[in-house]
Amino acid sequence: MDSVIEVRNLTKRYKDVLALDDVGFDIRKDTIYGFLGRNGAGKTTAMSILTAQNLPSSGQVRVFGEDPYENARVLSRMCFVRESQKYPDDATSRHALASARLFFPRWDQELADDLVEEFQLPLKRTIKKLSRGQLSAVGVIIGLASRAEITFFDEPYLGLDAVARQIFYDRLLTDYAEHPRTVVLSSHLIDEVSNLIERVLVIDGGRIIMDESTEDARALATNVVGDAATVERALHGREVIHRESLGRVASVTFLGRLDAAERDALASAGIDLAPVSLQQLIVRLTQQRTPGRDAFAAAAQEGSLR
């Protein structure tokens, strides 16, 4: 597989926080990635380093085979749309788009104009005065119309309503189909994006915990519901990632699949099998945090309870 990004042993340490902990992964050419994880998991830090907006503490990053840091040749082929992008004070939406046109060699003005209309973005208003959704729209338009060979969207939808988000997803898909490129989409709305992405990269506590095709990821876990004792017996020895119960009924999610014989056996024992959505799977996987890491959050919660 053609890789456009190669990351090896990447570590980023802020004063007392380890944001990225010896991370390694590849990003394939012309593929849409979902870059998923909880807040503070290290997504933005990773994307900032890949686009040379931030610097690693140690480790190597290669983009198009080169170090992206201060490398105009590489940077001009990338676009990073940040959730909290800052714009010049006096800039209007028109200024922001006109600037992007200057710096992104594959910029498509027609697409930008279309999107401005679809998002109903007021061009003459200064960006300071835009609503949160309109602010996000500016970023989304820049990200799509730049047609950069690698585009990063970091939670691009803040303040966008369901209709606007659908416009974004639809436009992303149709434009990607016509102009294949690498897209890395970081999002909390996993259900919404799960059909758009070809591969999933999950980061948790500064470490990559999943790097799979979306299809394989969907098949990673299974959920069974039924009589608690029967379920426990049937799943003996399996890696259970979530368990909840209501009276004598238990719902248990475990990693792995069942073969046809096991399915039949469970079905005849009156146990229901249910698929696990990508969102459920990732929620389950990222909620199992090491105690040390969660100590702070737990302490904070205790504090608020007292």
Binding site: T51, A52, Q53, E70, N71, A72, L75, S76, M78, C79, F80, V81, R82, Q85, K86, Y87, P88, D89, A91, A96, S99, A100, L102, F103, F104, I142, A148
Partner: peptide, 20 residues
């Protein structure tokens, strides 16, 4: 001061190097 604070973050979004 303003050339730095107002425009540097946006220059990064425009995929510029710090030197440029």
């Amino acid at each position: 001061i303003q050339a730095m604070t107002m425009t540097f973050p946006f220059s990064q979004a425009m995929s510029l190097t710090r030197r440029e």
